[in-house]
């Protein structure tokens, strides 16, 4: 899988989308309206209570925007690909992937690179920039680097988790319910972690590391203390993404091996 091949795929995917451009732009408009609505709901909520667990509107906007922005990046490379894997295993189209001189995982995620997430990126990117200016933070070079790493890491966490769920279709054949579960749990991180009890906090930190996507990095940038992680550990938070993604990839490859009858 080379960068040249990836760009070729992106060009073809764009051309493919433009075959049905009306449908494409309509879908993007719908997504923009839907996510703007989500922001409005949270905003109204805060208008009533002034803050959620001590977090003000721009802070919550930052938190939610990191979650949505990294989801869009990660899901563009993994959500539809992994959701449809079940079908590919059943009807045998996965086989065609295995007779190409490319890494099957990388080819699969790039072949399915989803341009539809541009809507999520536009909405969450704009709010993110607004929130950062509204918060009037003092920016050092380190903090800017930290923010960039946070976004990369968050996208990798989302990809890693989606990949892990997708890989279960090699084992259980059906994996749809796990995707529903993913979105339900992901809803939790629209709000600061202290809103929830200890159990959920531990769950989202040590079991399924959703809190590493936005809550911990945002707390660090906003100089807020967290219950479970100390300040020094905060610098290590962006490592969670690569770790998660690697684990997901390994599990996926294990799944393919099992499908081939080599392992398992």
């Amino acid at each position: 899988m080379t960068l040249r091949l990836f760009w070729k795929l992106v060009r073809l995917l764009m051309k493919e989308r433009m075959e049905y451009r009306g449908d494409f732009f309509l879908a993007i408009a719908a997504q923009i309206i839907s996510y703007t609505g989500d922001y409005i709901i949270i905003w109204l909520f805060i208008q009533k209570f002034n803050h959620i667990a001590g977090w003000t509107w721009p802070e919550i906007a930052l938190l939610y925007s990191i979650s949505l922005f990294t989801y869009a990046l990660g899901a563009a490379f993994s959500f539809v690909q992994m959701r449809d894997l079940e079908g590919q295993v059943n009807n045998g189209t996965l086989d065609a992937l295995l007779v190409k001189p490319v890494n099957p995982y990388l080819y699969l995620i790039c072949r399915g690179f989803n341009l539809g997430y541009i809507a999520h990126l536009v909405v969450s990117g704009s709010v993110l920039i607004w929130a950062l200016t509204a918060l009037d933070l003092e920016w050092s070079a380190m903090q800017i680097i930290y923010l960039v790493l946070t976004i990369i890491s968050g996208a990798l966490i989302q990809t890693g988790i989606l990949t892990t769920i997708g890989a279960t279709s090699f084992i259980w054949v059906r994996s749809g319910f796990l995707f529903n579960l993913f979105f339900k749990i992901k809803d939790f991180i629209s709000y600061p972690l202290p809103v929830f009890g200890t159990f959920i906090q531990i769950l989202l930190t040590f079991v399924i590391p959703f809190a590493f996507i936005n809550y911990y990095p945002a707390s660090f940038l906003l100089s807020r203390d967290t219950m479970l992680l100390s300040d020094e550990v905060m610098w290590l938070v962006p490592l969670m993404g690569p770790l998660c993604c690697l684990a997901g990839y390994r599990f996926w490859m294990y799944g393919v091996n099992r499908y081939q009858g080599a392992g398992g």
């Binding site: 795929l9 073809l12 045998g92 001189p101």
Partner: peptide
Amino acid sequence: MGVVFGQRSQLWWDLPVMDSFDLHKYVYR
């Protein structure tokens, strides 16, 4: 190796035939 699975197409449904050939060039370098 060349592999043809009769009933499972790996072509790009909505794009001209030439595009699928073109991609093959990149996949196999």
